[in-house]
């Protein structure tokens, strides 16, 4: 369902609630997967997506979306996740054992990794993605999981297309460098 349709229905009406919930069920999984790639925590990832939908609900009467619904949702989740990461950083700055925490590698929680059997290369790739700098990772994943174009990403994040391009390039270059030995 596209935003216009969603908006047209009017969120106050009963159908509006249904439309809202449908948008949620349609997008939750995708947005969650994206949030997960950025924050690497199931609770926070869900919270990020939930927060975005709560805000949409609160603002439903005056919400203006000038982009596609998809771009808007991914962009909002991006901001939510980055806020969290920034907060996390401030908090971590106080902790001496910060290094130990961010040595990364651990991507999924036990339950998740039990369900998903990744190939060796995929595991290594996931690890390498996790080790990308926060913003770089967030933008890269936005393009990857959100399948958003550079322009859409730039528009949603309020940055230039050049920056988006540079971040994605940086991500891929880093990944290749790390994984060159595993890539046939």
């Amino acid at each position: 369902m596209e935003w216009n349709e969603f908006n047209k229905v009017g969120l106050l009406a009963d159908e509006g609630v249904q439309a809202f919930e449908k948008v949620f069920t349609d997008w939750f999984g995708h947005l969650y997967a994206y949030a997960m790639s950025v924050v690497k925590d199931e609770g926070i990832a869900e919270e990020a997506v939930q927060a975005v939908f709560c805000r949409i609900w609160e603002k439903r009467e005056r919400l203006q979306v000038h982009a596609s619904l998809k771009a808007y949702l991914y962009g909002s989740v991006y901001h939510e996740c980055m806020d969290w990461l920034r907060h996390r950083k401030r908090v971590e700055a106080h902790r001496r054992h910060a290094q130990a925490i961010y040595t990364g590698g651990r991507v999924m929680t036990e339950s998740a990794s039990a369900k998903v059997e990744l190939g060796e290369l995929e595991k290594k790739l996931q690890q390498a993605i996790d080790e990308l700098p926060d913003q770089c990772r967030a933008i890269f994943c936005l393009s990857r999981y959100g399948e958003l174009g550079y322009k859409e990403i730039a528009g949603q994040l309020g940055i230039s297309v050049k920056t988006v391009e540079a971040q994605i390039s940086k991500a891929l270059k880093r990944l290749r460098k790390k994984l060159a030995d595993f890539l046939v």
Partner: peptide, 25 residues
């Protein structure tokens, strides 16, 4: 090819375990 592999793979690894959508709703 290396870049392409990375690009393709990175799109797939994203889909890991996710909470039940109905429960989340």
């Amino acid at each position: 090819r290396q870049f392409r592999t990375l690009w393709d793979l990175s799109g797939r690894t994203a889909v890991s375990a996710r909470p039940d959508t109905q429960e989340a709703l």
